Computed example of a mutant assay.
Amino acid sequence: MNETRDPAPEHGPAPTTGLAIPTIDLARWRSDGPDARRATAAAVDTALRTTGFLLITGHGLDQDLRTRIRRTARTFFALPAAEKQPYATEVGGRGWLGPGAEANGAAEGTATPPDLKESLSFASEEPTGDPAVDAEWFLPNIWPHQVPALRLDVQDLLTALRALSDSLLELLATTLGAAPDRFTRHTAHPTWGFNINWYPGTRTVGEALPGQFRIGPHTDFGTVTVLDRQHGKGGLQVWTDPAHGGTGWQDAPYVPGSLTVNIGDLMARWTDGRWRAGRHRVLPPPPDAPAEELMSLVYFYECDPGTRIGPLADSHTYLRAQLNAINPGRPA
């Protein structure tokens, strides 16, 4: 088992500010001088102590590639349910998460209706050689035969997303004043998940029930999440805690070409609570735009199985429990 422990961070109460989500240019971060890098690190630290969110530019992800993936995935989601059913899976699996398959608000212990979305879900699949670990975390992905172009495009994007996620972890380590490999020394063979989330309009999903969202309120479970989202009225909202100067739910800022990054529960624990996991939700189809349709590409980065993080003896015991919690088909 990998042993990790952060030194006790020197910090007082979280800054009392509202929606502090800075835009960080990774290309400039790599080329800036010491003074500019310190200013960037201070902005990152403030954001992660309040909302847990950043916007990232200079990330190098191919826009045409992401556009193709959305177009191909839309072809799949438009198929009749009977054609998608052979790919049906549960949360944490590989394949199609259909209507009613996920309820993210349950991760907070809240009884919640299922999320108003469908997903194509992929995850880490390169075996480690440990049969028990591989059987739980490194199974082959499922590729729908109706959209053969999806496989190569998604695999290309996944390669870029893993490299980007390690770069983000290096940025976070540097922000803390630690060695750049503070976190990436525990991502030699990490787990990850990748979802193509389709948020259809009211005609497809029906009117939202009380307390029902495209994605219910929650924090992510891993280290960093990289989100390529589309702007819309029924879009992403971020929680700003009134106890720390926030005002509750606010629409997340949107900068064309940027990626939205938030930290998850594992990273919050890895910093002994200095940083807070970014709580968020995705609104249901808006009443004044019921036909609105959005699609997000979401990469959930974690760490090597068995990593010890703060009070968690095994990061992946925690991850499995959280994945089970948001699966409406599993008993609480």
Rank of each mutant, 00 (worst) to 15 (best):
R274C: 07
D25S: 09
P80H: 04
L169E: 08
Q212W: 01
D228A: 11
A160D: 15
G232V: 14
A103P: 00
N141D: 10
P305T: 13
E125V: 12
T75A: 08
T89C: 07
Y254D: 09
A103C: 09
M295F: 03
P114D: 13
G257C: 05
A27V: 06
R203Y: 02
G95P: 02
L323W: 06
G177L: 03
H218F: 01
G264N: 04
W143G: 00
L259I: 03
G33A: 09
L152C: 05
R330V: 13
P242G: 07
R49N: 05
T40M: 12
W29E: 04
A277G: 08
A332N: 14
A8W: 03
P80E: 04
G98N: 02
A289K: 10
G12F: 12
A173H: 03
H11L: 07
T271N: 03
S119Y: 06
G232C: 14
P253Y: 14
H231Y: 12
L48W: 10
V255W: 14
P253D: 06
G245P: 03
P114R: 14
E292P: 05
L139K: 10
N197C: 01
G12E: 12
L168I: 06
I196R: 00
T128W: 01
A88W: 06
I24Q: 05
S121Q: 15
E90L: 06
R74P: 01
G306L: 04
Y318N: 09
V44T: 03
D272W: 07
M1K: 09
D64A: 08
W275V: 06
L164T: 02
A39G: 09
Q322A: 15
A47G: 09
I69D: 05
T57V: 01
T16S: 13
V154M: 08
G98R: 00
L236F: 12
G98D: 02
